[in-house]
Each structure stands twice: as C-alpha cells, then as structure tokens.
C-alpha cells in the first residue's frame, strides 16, 4: 500500500495541471457553454502530450489515467476524458480510435453526453459492445440544464463488434470514469463554496464560522474523499465489477449531497451566470444518473458481492 504520489505520478499531475490551467478552467467553460460542443482543443493538447493513453503505458497504468480524469474534472474540462482514457483502452486497445468518443448503453434510455460531437460511439448491448463511427448514428442535440452537451442517439449502422464480453468490461470502466469525474467535479464545487463561506460575512462574521455550516461542508468533504479514493482504488485493481460499482455509487451519493449543499450554502448567487458554481454543480446531476445511476451501480455492487 502506498497513498502518496510517486515522482512519476506527481510529474504527470503537475504537467496536466499546467495544460488545464491554460486551456480549461471557468473562463473556457463559459466560452463552451455559449458556443456549445466539447473542448476538442483541450483533447488535442492532452492527446499530443500523451495524457489520454496513460492506461496502456507500462510506466503509468490506469490509475494515472484516473488521476488525470479527476484532475481534468476539477478544472472543469468539457470533454469525455474519462471515457477516452479509461474505457477505450480497455475495449479497443489497438489505439485506432479518435479522441472524442461517447458511450451509450442501449438498455438505458435518455440523452447521451457528447453524442453529437463524438467521432465514434461505444455501444454497450448486454454483455457485448461495438463501436460505431459518426456516420453510423444520428445524434440530435437535447436541451439540458446540466452542463454537458447532450444528444439523443439513433443507431443505424452495425458498427464493429468488439471482443466478446466487451460490454461488461466497458460498463465497469465507465463506472470508474464516472467516479473519477464526479470526484473532481465535486471538489471544484466544494472549493468554490468554501471560498464563498470564508469570504462572505453575515451577522458580523464569515459564514464559515457557523458550526451548522461547518458540519454540512465537512460531511460533504468526507463523502467526496471517499469517492475519490474508491475511484483510484478501482482503477488500480483493473475495475473489478464490485469495486467499480462501489466507486460509482459512492460518487453518485457524494454528487447528490454536494450538489444540494453547495447551492444551499452559496445562496442566490450560486444560481447566477456571473458566478462560477453552476459550471461544476450542475454537471454533478448529469454524472450521478449516468450508466444507470445509483440503481444500476447498486445492482452491480450487490451482484458482484453477494450473488
């Protein structure tokens, strides 16, 4: 056991942070919210630096890919980094897929993140999975409040079947990716709210001085930390079904608590466009229902552990 970043991991995180500070962050997230679409520029920068392929690198591995996914989310990156860096290498390790990949499970209805922008779509169908190129599906943009470009998907091509059992594998890694993404996104919302509570004076003292507020924030912090480390652990162990589901469920629960606490404790300013909170908070709602949400993760966890 070792919980401290190695020099290699620390260097990856530092270099990624440099890219993310320059190319992501609240200002970029605002631009993208106005323009629509995913951040292909950021994906390109990360790909060029090799940070989307860490999972297949013997020197780094999937844990490093999870760290990058988490870090990118903390910097409000608007791109499917988790899917590209954790799911794609697991089911299509040949490395011939584009950077912008979306994922859908045919058993789960509803709009799909990044489907309209995706150059390829991983389609999970029961135990199996296949990959469709952009020409093989139609994505119709869906209006949503929840921070990501989303689209309903209609499949009309057969695509290329992935290896037998890829559906199960993709589902497990998808859960790890979601957990890492929630951990990073929730941290962004938490940190911004902490700053607000420290700076905002009411009744003659900072809001952070009130114990009622402290306790709610710290309980939220503990949930986020739990999700963060479960995501890392699941990535390290190769996303076994139970661990992946546990990480995703912990993250979904942390997301729910974080979303409502940060908005309650930020007051009305939290809902405004002049303030940055919704750039992270609303994404949590989309992430916590993805891949079957808490119900799906719970079923996978119980099946993996007790059945």
């Amino acid at each position: 056991m070792e919980m401290t970043l190695s020099p290699t991991q620390a260097a990856i995180c530092e270099a990624c942070t440099t890219i993310l500070r320059r190319a992501a962050g609240p200002a970029r997230a605002r631009e993208l919210r106005a323009e629509g679409g995913a951040d292909t520029r950021l994906l390109g920068l990360l790909a060029d630096a090799g940070y989307l392929d860490l999972a297949l690198n013997a020197e780094t591995g999937p844990l490093s890919a999870a760290l990058v996914t988490e870090l990118a989310a903390t910097h409000l990156a608007l791109a499917p980094i988790g899917v590209r860096s954790l799911v794609v290498p697991a089911v299509a390790p040949a490395g011939d897929l584009p950077n912008l990949v979306a994922i859908v499970d045919v058993a789960i209805p509803g709009p799909v993140r990044y489907a309209a922008e995706a150059e390829a779509l991983i389609v999970i169908d029961g135990h199996e999975a296949r990959i469709l190129q952009a020409a093989e599906f139609t994505a119709t943009a869906a209006s949503t409040l929840f921070g990501y470009p989303m689209a309903t998907v209609e499949l009309h091509g057969k695509g290329v079947d992935l290896a037998p059992g890829s559906g199960d594998v993709a589902r497990r890694w998808w859960r790890v990716a979601i957990a890492a993404e929630i951990a990073g996104t929730a941290r962004a919302a938490f940190d911004l709210t902490s700053d607000h509570l420290i700076g905002r004076v009411q009744f003659g003292k900072p809001l952070a001085a009130f114990q009622a507020i402290q306790h709610r924030m710290m309980e939220t912090h503990v949930l986020i930390e739990g999700a963060r480390w479960l995501a890392r652990e699941a990535a390290f162990h190769g996303a076994p079904a139970e661990r992946a589901a546990s990480a995703a469920l912990a993250a979904a629960e942390a997301a729910g608590r974080t979303l409502f606490e940060v908005h309650q404790l930020s007051g009305s300013i939290g809902f405004t466009n002049e303030y940055d909170l919704t750039l992270s908070s609303l994404r949590l709602q989309a992430l916590r229902v993805e891949a079957g949400g808490a119900a799906g993760h719970s079923k996978a966890l119980v099946t993996g552990r007790w059945l």
Binding site: S6, G61, G238
Partner: peptide, 10 residues
C-alpha cells in the same frame, strides 16, 4: 496494470 514500481498503489 503492469507497472509495479513505487507509486500510489493498493
């Protein structure tokens, strides 16, 4: 993963 070097590991 194949790397067993020093790092965060479980």
């Amino acid at each position: 993963h194949v790397d067993k070097g020093e790092r965060v590991h479980f």
